[in-house]
């Protein structure tokens, strides 16, 4: 928290870009070109941060998208569960919150375990409960930068 939007995006991007540059110079049999052709602009579901997927398989455009998502997620407020009776369980893992659990708040005021919602947001920028876009306006301004 506390990073400015632009700063975190640049930080996330540079290692990804470097990795791709390296792969291009070292080998030509990487499967990343056919992979790109299979998904021409269609919806792509990104692996969660826990699932490792070779950076070489992603186009530069995809890497930028992932970096933007990571940067964006970091700017959603976090906190610890305070025992609030209104939200008893995280609907993603269906496990009851325990006071002190790290949680993240969405603009629609739904709360989730931080690790649960972060994995979901990598796939979709909507609230899993109410389907409200997490922050369409901010995301748009971010993408046109």
């Amino acid at each position: 928290m506390g990073n400015c939007l632009k700063g975190s995006s640049t930080d996330d991007l540079s290692p990804l870009r470097n990795a791709e540059t390296t792969s291009e110079t070292t080998t030509s049999e990487q499967p990343w070109i056919p992979y790109r052709e299979v998904n021409p602009g269609g919806p792509i579901f990104y692996p969660s941060p826990g699932i490792s997927c070779s950076v070489n398989q992603l186009s530069e455009e995809d890497q930028v998208k992932i970096a933007k998502k990571l940067g964006f997620i970091q700017h959603l407020p976090t906190g610890t569960y305070d025992g609030c009776k209104k939200n008893r369980e995280c609907v993603i893992c269906m496990i009851e919150f325990i006071v002190g659990d790290p949680v993240r708040y969405l603009p629609c005021l739904h709360i989730y375990h931080k690790k649960c919602i972060d994995a979901w947001l990598m796939r979709s920028f909507t609230c899993p409960s109410c389907m409200e876009p997490v922050d369409a306006a901010l995301l748009t301004s971010y993408e046109t930068k």
């Binding site: 609907v91 993603i92 909507t126 899993p128």
Partner: peptide, 8 residues
């Protein structure tokens, strides 16, 4: 498919 949500 694409309209799946984790709360379902």
């Amino acid at each position: 498919k694409d309209q799946w949500a984790a709360a379902m």
